[in-house]
Nucleic acid binder design. Sequence first.
DNA 1: TGATCCTGTCAATATTATGTTTAATATTTG
DNA 2: CAAATATTAAACATAATATTGACAGGATCA
Lengths: 323, 323
Amino acid sequence: METPILHPIRYVALQTGLKPYLIRTWEVRYDVVCPKRTGNNRRLYSDDDVKRLKLLKMAVDCGHAISSVVPLGNQELQALVAQARNDRQGPEAIGSTASSGPRDMTQHVTAHAVESALARIIQLDPHGLEGVLSEAAVELPRQAFLQSVIVPLFARIGALWRSGELKIVNEHMASAIVRSMLWDMLRSIEISETAPRIVVATPVGHWHELGALIAALSASESGWRSLYFGPNLPSEEIGYAVKKCEAAALGLSIGHCLKDSTLPSELLRIRRSVGHRMPIYIGGEGVVFVRQTAAKIKAVVVDDLTAFRDQLERFMRDVPDGS
Amino acid sequence: METPILHPIRYVALQTGLKPYLIRTWEVRYDVVCPKRTGNNRRLYSDDDVKRLKLLKMAVDCGHAISSVVPLGNQELQALVAQARNDRQGPEAIGSTASSGPRDMTQHVTAHAVESALARIIQLDPHGLEGVLSEAAVELPRQAFLQSVIVPLFARIGALWRSGELKIVNEHMASAIVRSMLWDMLRSIEISETAPRIVVATPVGHWHELGALIAALSASESGWRSLYFGPNLPSEEIGYAVKKCEAAALGLSIGHCLKDSTLPSELLRIRRSVGHRMPIYIGGEGVVFVRQTAAKIKAVVVDDLTAFRDQLERFMRDVPDGS
DNA sequence: TGATCCTGTCAATATTATGTTTAATATTTG
DNA sequence: CAAATATTAAACATAATATTGACAGGATCA
């Protein structure tokens, strides 16, 4: 019998995103887990403990009270979280009560995060920006982080840039940092080999990666194996990647393209190169300019992340696992 | 029996990112490694020692206590680190990476790494590529990893692409992964606030970031605070960044530019926008095309990484810290 | 509305683990 | 030779942890 490796509390805090004092408080108040102790009374958590705490945090992030989810077993927690994720798009929940508790907090955190991130960007302070964003990333559920921090942040950067108040360097710095954060998140989602694969890219002439990365992340969270090939890819390259990877779908991200007249024909070529049966999802800010073409090539236009995930999960339900 | 190469402590410190006194303290307190000694009692570390220290630092960075990871073997450490990296957030999925650790000579390791990396790139297997490269990164000193794996790898990718044997997607995939690895390395080097700052970028029209990232990494290893602003930056943006960040130097990376006739004039503009006293270092594959212009604007052309570091360290000796 | 509960946060304190500095000495290096 | 770097042992400084108790803002209920 090998001694299983036990972890100190700061490791657990890093893994779960919970603060150390909260972990202790939960133990004292609710008996969430019962870690062993070292000879000097330091807590030692097992992998199971870590897993349980992760699930509990997820449940709490979904709006459940900690006291109410503590008695549940791991499986029930898993189910609860999965259900909450599905429900989110169902009951509208646009402006009304539903779960106002965490939402208010979230509102506050996100607004603050965007503002102080912007301040660091203006100051060209990469270190500070990274600090602000990674704090927000642990503070918030991933979804909220992406939709309420990253997306609005870059919307504002774009606006400020167009009005001449921000320079390209500012945008570059922010992009580099966010890109690496998203990449790390993407990598940290382990997906089974047999999961259906989706190729994610942006068409030729489109350089903005962030939308594509967010799409890849969303797909991975929906259980797909995302293959990210980055920006500015010609149609035949996309077709090649899709075939080579035996992908089950293709995701395209379109940034704001004011005058890109080549895009429609490029989309036609993409359709031709991936074959007429391959599902194509198109999203991003510039999507409004290609609705017609999208319809012509039978691509699905997704107007936001929720719609995208919805499509992916529906698809997965029809064609569950390894083809 | 060949005498294995042994290293003094400052080399080990450079490679691992640990401070010399910490290495000594760990030896005294925890018996982490047991280096040989010279006739005069200086420590001499083997490559295995270095590797072990690297792994220990990684484990500590993951939140483990040094005292608790010391008794673990290298293989266990590797597993621990991999687990910690993958497990952040999502509790499902128990990944198992079967990786044995054969100990070869550096020559052999690098050649093998480049070849198998190339194989993954051709197969469009991002996960595999990442595995190969990160294994090489622990196995090798950082310098060797950069100069003998990353640089040759991209040289070969470039050659294969020009000959039509590789597609753009392959290059994109490799770039994305390597970029994120380099970024992580860059971030993991801690530099004091007061260290002299260097702005690193590539001029307008030049999109290849890797050279610039490597330059930033080298500068950070030489004790500079690198500010990386990415590819394709117009001269006035570069000037702005340099001023805003109060940088003490500017590093430019030039990729292979066959027919870029605008580059010389752009360099002139850059010189004008940063002022005539600012040291400018120019490096990269395309450097051969701009020697004349470089001389005209009094920029220092560095032909390889060693030369670059040399310059930076010399500069630092003259103008040591703050001010 | 006011009282009460839930829950995250923080403060004070004691202890331990760990990182950093110092001092004295010796060796290396330019 | 002077300056930089190593070694050792000890001291010092920080940061992390545990424990207890308190507090505040939102949620809930009477």
